[in-house]
Computed example of a mutant assay.
Amino acid sequence: MKLIGVDIGGSHISAAQVILENRHAEIANFHEADVDTYGNVESIISAWSEVIQRAKGDLIDVKIGIAMPGPYDYENGVSLIKDQGKMAALYKLSVKNLLAESLAVSPCQISFTNDAEAFLSGESYAGAGKEFQNSIGITLGTGLGSAIKVQEVVKDAKLWTAPFRDGIAEDYIGTGWFKNQAQNKYSLHISGAKDLLAEGFDPQISSELFTEFGRALGEFLFPYLIRLHAEGVILGGKISLAGDYYLPATKSYLETMGYPVPINVSELGEQSALIGACLPFVDK
């Protein structure tokens, strides 16, 4: 049995052959493309199938694991995404059956996994989360992705809507917060956290924003770490790459609260979801 890992987002898809053995993973024949998911059913499925087929190559006996953002009926591969514009044409359709037909494989050869679960599963199998039995996975970017792992079970935590301070978690932890805080506090227009590291950007403002963000992350994580008896946190997403600038504040807050834990940045990067999406076939 050969495994094909697929990671689908709102405007992008990547796919590759995945080789798993003894908590080690290798990626081969990697392909990716941007996809206009505002289009019709045929154009979306065709674009996705083309990339998956390129990764699949001449392989015949394959299992295809797909990491997909929610809301989704993952077991049946049915899209429940309807209010985001992207993928709207696929609402309530069996994407599993549509892809199976397009790729000329059986629907039972395709498995869907929540993208946050796939990230944490991949990192727990072969990356930054290998040492933890209980852990929290957080992806930091335009949105806030989250998953929890308790022993061998990984589940989407849906913490982006969790009540936090004067709003919800995603108001304070993600790209939107950096943009809003830079505008409201310093009258600066930025596109995201990466702008704070640009040459010529005021290092004092950059330091203040990162420190404030890092504290908020620690404050957000603390009750969930306690509740889950978590041994560590795994961070992914674009903002995780700037961890050196805000994680000291996160760790300092957790130490002050009496619950210091390792916070590891993803070792597998974008490959983690490809690997995690294939693990349901291995577990079975």
Rank of each mutant, 00 (worst) to 15 (best):
D61A: 04
Q181W: 03
S43L: 02
V95K: 05
P107N: 05
V282N: 04
A193P: 10
L268A: 07
G269F: 09
Y72D: 01
G129H: 10
Q183W: 06
K56M: 15
F112K: 15
D58L: 00
L93I: 02
V153Q: 14
A88I: 06
N180H: 14
F222L: 12
I81H: 10
T175Q: 01
K284Q: 15
S206G: 11
G214R: 12
V154Y: 07
A67F: 03
S49W: 02
V261P: 04
L225T: 02
E231F: 00
V78C: 05
G236P: 01
H31D: 06
G167F: 14
V282P: 07
T37W: 11
I226H: 12
A216E: 08
S191M: 11
F119G: 02
A33L: 05
R54V: 00
L228G: 06
V62L: 02
A47V: 07
F178I: 02
A162G: 09
A47E: 13
Y246D: 03
F132E: 11
D195I: 08
F132K: 10
I81W: 09
E117G: 03
E267W: 06
P262S: 06
D7I: 03
G276K: 07
R227M: 13
Q271C: 11
N264T: 00
P262R: 12
M87L: 15
G9Q: 04
Y246C: 05
L228A: 11
I8F: 13
Y74A: 00
L209Q: 10
